[in-house]
């Protein structure tokens, strides 16, 4: 392996050539703050919070865009660096509403966490604020520009990973805004509601709509596999009182932090009162709850009877994209060899 030797915060390390300082530090357990970086995206270097001091290199350098070099001496939390981060956070919070008490993202907000860590209170420069803009046209999530810190993650995820390009930047300088073309709203854009922008928003600008009120620290998370299709995306269900209140994509799985609209937002049926949780069997014209054993017995006996009375081709089977390949294979196998018909199809083919 091609490596370089360097010093970070007084300790010697040997790190693979071409690694960015931010990644190198995170690998060895040094936490450098950043609001705009995402390993999956081209580094943008826009939030400037990850700046570090490199001895002999003059001004500060952003760790997300600087590669490790032989002999580098890096300080990730020197006085100069900490001061710069404090000033940058001061600038950000000065142009941000202080409504953490009612903000859904409180407790899961990077700006809040970093201001806490670096000791920034309400902001020195609470003068002109960015123009308010609120987009609530999407059925699954909302966008509040006043909370947006313009890190650009949503725009870049939509472009680089999702390939939808529904949102972009509008205007420039202090007037810059994340927006859909002509400000016509997400509903009227090419947005597919995948919510991958929502998943990366470090603050409360992009928020999923929720039917239930909850605080971020009240929730439990449970890793599970999305059951909407056979891809098997991993995700963390956020639950409060045993009720799902949100979904976050898993970053350490093959879906690499991405989900689709179904995985991200379609969980309300789980606790819907109409949802079937027990098998039902019709007795004397009325559906009544029963056991799985009884239900299977009813199914098999009726199938046998039907095959005898009307023949194999009286059956037709339709299976679902929500099942795995293995399940689908078994289903068609059952139809072909047990029931003896080729009348079997799959919804994804439609």
């Amino acid at each position: 392996m091609n490596t370089v030797k360097l010093t970070i915060n007084g300790k010697q390390y040997e790190i693979e050539k071409g690694t960015f300082v931010l990644k190198a530090c995170s690998d060895i357990g040094i936490d450098i703050p950043t609001m705009c970086h995402d390993e999956r995206l081209v580094p943008s270097g826009s939030c400037r919070l990850c700046q570090v001091e490199v001895e002999g290199w003059g001004k500060l350098h952003t760790a997300c865009t600087t590669q490790v070099k032989e002999g580098m001496v890096i300080h990730t939390h020197s006085e100069k660096v900490v001061k710069a981060r404090q000033d940058l956070l001061d600038m950000l919070i000065s142009n941000h509403p202080l409504d953490c008490l009612t903000c859904e993202s409180a407790g899961a907000c990077k700006l809040q966490d970093l201001c806490y860590e670096y000791g920034i209170t309400e902001g020195t420069y609470r003068w002109e604020m960015s123009k308010p803009y609120y987009d609530d046209t999407n059925p699954f999530y909302t966008f509040d520009a006043s909370k947006c810190i313009l890190c650009g993650l949503c725009v870049r995820v939509c472009d680089e990973l999702q390939g939808t390009n529904a949102i972009g930047f509008e205007n420039r300088g202090f007037e810059t805004l994340v927006a859909t073309p002509f400000g016509e709203g997400l509903e009227n854009s090419t947005c597919v509601s995948c919510g991958n922008c929502v998943s990366v928003c470090p603050v409360g600008a992009l928020e999923p709509r929720s039917k239930m009120k909850f605080r971020q620290w009240e929730i439990e998370t449970t890793r599970t596999t999305c059951s909407y299709c056979g891809v098997g995306c991993q995700m963390d269900l956020k639950t409060k009182n045993n009720r799902v209140v949100g979904v976050e994509p898993a970053f350490d799985a093959h879906n690499e932090g991405l989900l689709c609209v179904k995985g991200k937002f379609s969980y309300n049926f789980l606790s819907h009162p109409d949802r079937l949780t027990m098998p039902l069997v019709r007795k004397d014209g009325v559906l009544v709850e029963t056991t799985w054993d009884e239900a299977y017995n009813v199914i098999t006996s009726k199938m046998k009877q039907t095959k005898e009375d009307f023949g194999s081709d009286s059956f037709a089977g339709l299976t679902s994209a929500r099942c795995t390949n293995e399940d689908n294979y078994m289903f068609q196998k059952m139809f072909r060899s047990t029931l003896g018909t080729n009348n079997v199809d799959h919804c994804a083919r439609l």
């Binding site: 472009d159 509008e170 859909t180 090419t190």
Partner: peptide
């Protein structure tokens, strides 16, 4: 015409809008 440009040059509308407002 921006929609035409988007279609003809295969450039997403959001990108064109971003450039036009910059």
């Amino acid at each position: 015409m921006l929609e035409t440009i988007s279609k003809e040059l295969s450039i997403p509308m959001a990108e064109i809008y971003g450039v036009a407002t910059f």
